[in-house]
């Protein structure tokens, strides 16, 4: 009469990066992927709405007349570069170099802040020309789709700043490593969304 019982060992699994080696932390990474699924669907719904509303310009100007490609190109360069620097930050984290981690994470934030600043500037100048979202369904869909992405980037910046403080206080531990890793997933995700915005909204707007 014996009942098989599970051995409950806690500890780091060998051969895995720090954030995945601890079972309690890696499960949070699984959870974060699930969160990203919901965020993908938020953006999917917004893209679908934009596709429907793109031609519904009412009496306001359409995509070809309202987009400024200079700022958009700058924003694209800033965000794509920041995706590279956040990758370098994770690489520094995995090789245990805290100072380099700080440097690349700070660089990511500066690039992200540049992106947000440029986007805000672009939006305010559009509104200044009277292109408000009240004017047409197309402008509503445009501002909300691109603005939701911009709000995500802004939230990411606030999040990363709090992470910098946590790493400064605690160093690279399984918990902070997991937090940095999920942040990098989030940031790369925003980068991919921007690639779609650039392609379907801005370049698609040029095609008409």
């Amino acid at each position: 009469m014996s009942l098989p019982l599970a051995e409950e060992e806690t500890g780091l699994a060998p051969g895995l990066p720090l954030e995945l080696a601890d079972d309690r932390e890696s499960i949070k990474i699984t959870g974060f992927w699930m969160f990203l699924v919901t965020d993908v669907l938020i953006f999917a719904s917004l893209f679908a709405s934009y596709a429907v509303y793109r031609s519904r310009v009412a009496l306001a100007p359409g995509p070809a007349q309202v987009f400024h490609y200079g700022p958009v190109l700058l924003e694209t360069l800033l965000l794509l570069t920041s995706s590279f620097t956040v990758g370098l930050a994770i690489w520094a984290m995995r090789t245990g170099r805290t100072r380099m981690l700080f440097f690349w994470l700070a660089a990511t934030l500066v690039l992200g802040a540049g992106f947000v600043t440029s986007e805000i500037h672009d939006f305010t100048s559009m509104v200044g020309q009277g292109l408000t979202w009240h004017q047409s369904a197309f402008l509503s869909a445009f501002y909300v789709l691109v603005g939701t992405h911009g709000a995500h980037v802004t939230f990411g910046i606030v999040w990363a700043v709090t992470l910098l403080f946590q790493v400064a206080r605690r160093g690279i531990t399984p918990v902070t490593a997991r937090k940095l890793y999920t942040f990098s997933l989030y940031w790369h995700f925003l980068d991919i969304v921007w690639v779609f915005i650039f392609t379907f909204v801005y370049l698609g707007g040029k095609i008409g």
């Binding site: 709405s49 306001a60 979202w133 004017q135 369904a137 197309f138 402008l139 909300v144």
Partner: peptide, 13 residues
């Protein structure tokens, strides 16, 4: 905030 997604005017649907 007076956007025009589902209104009858301004191309809303």
């Amino acid at each position: 905030f007076q956007s025009s997604f589902f209104t009858l005017g301004h191309g809303g649907m």
